[in-house]
């Protein structure tokens, strides 16, 4: 009945052929777009590309010009201030909110819905509504003045010294809900017995959080940190909508620099160099994390 001849070993490439065909889009995306595109941009950042990409290498010229440009320096400064503060505040606020939400409170769902809804909104919407609220003629400043504090000044969007803090307020409003959710998921993932043990041992709640729970949540913190940080580097729409980089160039950010030089100033080389700098920044954040997260596991 059955053949006694062993089945020929099919060519490895054609085994489960369908699964390989199905992965072609992913492989193309990974190799051509992500890897290829990145390498292409990095290579062209060493050229004298202007209106069109040209392969005339000029060494580090583009980078020298970049770091000599006041607008780039301001962009980097803004990114640093925005980044550090946004990290600290969103982690602290997010964790506190999550810890409060974790106290078996009533209306938990209502509160969560309220804290998280801004995350569903785009940065454009976020930027525009905070532009309106921070409008000195009609917004918070005028309201506070109208109730008697006539010297009250709060016009971050029109003051180049503090404009980035105005953007920060909007950014925190949009993003802390997400951090809260991640933290809450982390808190819920902690063994109930830890809390029971701490209670039986008579350890006050704040100490339990500080010395037991937070150290246990290290992975959640790190993941959140990396997520926020790599998001911060990309910050673009928020600034475009809220301040358009102004007043003057006081609230410029690197991502906007890239876009403006690539698509408006038609100075591609600058755009490529600036985007490569962004790439390096992200790499500095992500690589140590990836090393800790995945490199360590393989050996363990």
């Amino acid at each position: 009945m059955r053949s006694t001849v062993p089945a020929g070993r099919p060519n490895r490439l054609f085994r489960n052929l369908n699964s390989k065909i199905a992965l072609i889009p992913m492989i193309l995306t990974a190799l051509v777009v992500f890897l290829g595109g990145t390498v292409w941009t990095v290579v062209y950042s060493f050229t004298r590309s202007g209106l069109l990409p040209r392969l005339t290498f000029v060494g580090l010229d583009q980078y020298e010009r970049l770091w000599a440009a006041p607008r780039w320096i301001i962009s980097i400064q803004n990114l640093a201030i925005y980044g550090v503060l946004s990290l600290i505040f969103s982690l602290v606020i997010g964790f506190i909110l999550a810890a409060l939400m974790d106290q078996k409170i009533r209306f938990e769902n209502t509160f969560r819905t309220i804290f998280l809804y801004p995350f569903a909104l785009s940065f454009i919407v976020t930027g525009l509504v905070w532009q309106w609220i921070l409008n000195p003629e009609f917004g918070v400043q005028s309201v506070v003045r109208s109730i008697g504090f006539t010297n009250f000044t709060f016009d971050p969007l029109y003051n180049s010294q503090i404009v980035i803090y105005g953007v920060l307020i909007a950014g925190l409003w949009q993003g802390t809900g997400l951090v809260m959710c991640l933290m809450l998921a982390g808190l819920r993932g902690i063994d109930e017995d830890i809390w029971k043990a701490a209670r039986v041992d008579g350890i006050p709640m704040w100490r339990t959080y500080l010395f037991i729970v937070i150290p246990m949540m290290r992975p959640v913190f790190i993941t959140t940190l990396v997520l926020i940080a790599s998001g911060i580097v990309k910050v673009y729409d928020l600034v475009v909508a809220q301040t358009s980089g102004g007043p003057g160039i006081a609230s410029e950010v690197p991502a906007k620099y890239v876009y403006d030089y690539m698509f408006q100033a038609q100075n591609l080389g600058q755009g490529f160099a600036a985007s490569t700098m962004m790439l390096i920044t992200v790499a500095i954040i992500v690589i140590p994390w990836a090393y800790l997260e995945f490199g360590g596991k393989k050996r363990g």
Binding site: R2, S3, T4, V5, P6, A7, G8, R9, P10
Partner: peptide, 13 residues
């Protein structure tokens, strides 16, 4: 299996 070399056969076969 049943004296037939199935080393490279699909599970269903």
């Amino acid at each position: 299996i049943k004296d037939k070399n199935v080393t490279w056969e699909e599970p269903k076969d």
